[in-house]
Design a protein around this nucleic acid. Sequence first.
DNA 1: CATATACGGAACTGATGAGTTCCGGATACA
DNA 2: TGTATCCGGAACTCATCAGTTCCGTATATG
Lengths: 207, 207
Amino acid sequence: MTQVDQTEAKPRLGRKRDHTRDPEILDAALDVLSESGYDGMTIDMVATRAKAGKATVYRRWSSKAELVLDAVACMKSNEFDLDDLPDTGTLRGDLVAMIRTPSIRAAERKLKVMAGIVSMIARSPELASAARAALVEPRASVNRVLFQRAIDRGEIPADADIEHLCMIGPAMVAYRLLMLGRPVDREFLISNIDKVILPAAGIRTEP
Amino acid sequence: MTQVDQTEAKPRLGRKRDHTRDPEILDAALDVLSESGYDGMTIDMVATRAKAGKATVYRRWSSKAELVLDAVACMKSNEFDLDDLPDTGTLRGDLVAMIRTPSIRAAERKLKVMAGIVSMIARSPELASAARAALVEPRASVNRVLFQRAIDRGEIPADADIEHLCMIGPAMVAYRLLMLGRPVDREFLISNIDKVILPAAGIRTEP
DNA sequence: CATATACGGAACTGATGAGTTCCGGATACA
DNA sequence: TGTATCCGGAACTCATCAGTTCCGTATATG
């Protein structure tokens, strides 16, 4: 969005505006957002954390709402490559292989950002779709690939409801972290795969 | 909490303070909270909606934070009676019987209130536990009874992880409404019971 | 080396909302 | 009927924060 390619549309005299710090400002915004929520976040906090001046922030984004929108949208970039997902040969293997500590950390931050903006989402369709594109869709896409593979292998029924299955993992993780305030650790995730996701996909896991 | 039994602890001269309007104020607070979120809510909005004066609100609650805490805690009251739950003889029957239109409406409002305060929850342990007691625990208790019955009947395995099973319904509903912004209708709930909850409980539902 | 521009930072403005105070009117009680 | 008290409502104070302006400095370009 705003952080790339804004080189035109301004007086071309002298040096171009330095956009190298934009990612740091957006990242600072996400940090503050996840810690304080939308209303708790001030532009001063963001600027200070990014070691920038408040005016610098406003030179790039015309309002707090736009900054937040852009920051949320930018989380979309550092995502999984759908063509390079683990392929272990079994659905369970693939799902377990997706559990990596850095991935858990990233997901927790994303969820905290989500928590910081949920109350806005109902009132701002733009923010809502940005949030879904950046926070919901990427993970759903990964799961879609994994489940489709399992269908292609004949591991799970061909008429399995992939869209529904995709949501189980994210829904359980979000609920546990945001509503229950309990840690989302490897143990929980494995347990969720074995006790909920696989049975729902039609795989028996009885001993 | 505050809305009941505050008859002592104030000068006993003349008439007692009129507490009959307290529930209306708390209810107005919940409405505004669900529509505008914690920060979007103003005391004036609450007072106006309850047809009360702002001063009247402050005569009863010393701050916005306390009013919200009390309002959230008060949602706990209008809840299910655990001794009078549907008993259809099957787990599926019981779960389906719990789906009633007013119950869906109430759950949606609760979730919107939750959305309005999630970002506070990480920073306020008091609000966090009030929210869990009022919004999470009641529904979990119901499910616990239903699943325990199914175990007692021998319908599902005795070693089923009830705590984990209890969360599936609430988690899927919360995710669908708050993250996806899609309607939680009867069709979705039934589908969720048949495709996720029952398989996770160890019941085969294949045709 | 000169200059134009964007930088960080600080000092502004204006709006908003928490919390307080005050008032005229209603009402329970004696 | 008198009176004490609480009511709804309006008018305040004060702090905070979005957004703007200004300034002295750093630096890329020529």
